[in-house]
Design a binder for these strands. Structure first.
Length: 288
DNA sequence: ATTTACCCTACATT
DNA sequence: AAATGTAGGGTAA
């Protein structure tokens, strides 16, 4: 084992499909390396590998911290069996979940989540990944892990300091201006993400919507993935298609109307429902 | 409440 | 072969 690294083992009693989980548009900062995956637990690089009975993780974090962050990232304290059972009463969701038994919801840190989904608008996953990698390499702090240099995701201050032109040069397009302005507000202390954690979802949502470049879809992604609000239900074109095609909802329904329908139906598990609907609808499309 | 323009990329079609 | 068209995890005017 490499020097100074901690290896932890996490037994799992529920399925875990790392490939689906890490590349399904929830997080964008993972690389396949050998039969494992290198990504991030907050600011710490980590190597994740499946083992017969669970998961093996290699990091420079102390053991306790590594366990805590991994549990948080993969939401291992959620009772996935209970969640799946509750949702499987819905035949459509039952099929989605059966197709992707190891797909899990992840949990990100608030600031990267906000930056990720600001950049995600109107872009396919490979492009989002490129934009975020470019941002990290240009403005993030370098870390050597497993013999390679990697870059932490840049802070709001680093992005604010770069200026909109430099961000645009990273091929962010019109998102450059949004990301820069939002980073400036946070860096100057004129907006705060940490306080949102203690607010009800609707109030937190209102505050996110006040940030430049944050509309309903992005706000809901930040709530779901960055703040762990499983009652949030992001409606993008894939989810819209799923609701129209599989539940017969009228195509002209507004995003707000679709969201209200889903939250009424699935309540605090709406975010889980969204994950399975989104991923299944999208992968069905990719197979065609 | 609806429509439109916005930056950029990948891929299909002509 | 180069040009044109289209769709893509949306937001703000």
């Amino acid at each position: 084992m490499a020097q100074g690294l901690t290896c932890i083992r996490v037994p799992l009693d529920t399925p875990l499909d790392l490939e689906a989980t890490l590349f399904s548009g929830q997080d964008f900062r993972w690389d396949r390396e050998g039969d494992g995956y290198v990504g991030w637990l907050g600011d710490a690089p980590v190597l994740l590998q499946r083992a017969p009975s669970g998961l093996v993780a290699l990091t420079s974090l102390p053991e306790g911290e590594a366990h805590a962050r991994l549990r948080r990232f993969l939401r291992l304290d959620d009772d996935l069996d209970a969640i799946r059972t509750a949702l499987a009463g819905d035949g459509v969701l039952a099929r989605c979940m059966a197709s992707w038994p190891g797909l899990r919801l992840v949990r990100l840190e608030p600031w990267p989540a906000l930056a990720f989904f600001l950049c995600s608008q109107h872009a396919p996953i490979p492009r989002i990944t490129r934009m975020l990698n470019a941002l990290a390499q240009a403005l993030g702090e370098p870390v050597v892990f497993l013999g390679r240099e990697r870059w932490r995701f840049p802070t709001p201050t680093a992005i604010a300091g770069a200026g909109p032109e430099r961000l645009a040069a990273l091929r962010l397009g019109y998102r450059a201006e949004y990301l820069w302005r939002t980073a400036c507000l946070l860096a100057q202390g004129r907006a705060h993400l940490d306080v949102l954690a203690s607010l009800p979802t609707e109030e937190a949502r209102r505050r996110l919507l006040a940030l430049p470049g944050v509309g309903e879809k992005v706000a809901d992604c930040v709530l779901l993935l960055g703040f762990g609000r499983t009652d949030a239900f992001p409606v993008d074109r894939w989810v819209r298609r799923a609701l129209v095609e599989w539940y017969g909802l009228p195509p002209p329904y507004t995003e707000r109307r679709l969201r209200a329908w889903a939250q009424e139906r699935w309540g605090s598990l709406a975010g889980y429902a969204q994950l399975y609907l989104f991923h299944h609808r999208r992968t069905v499309h990719l197979l065609q």
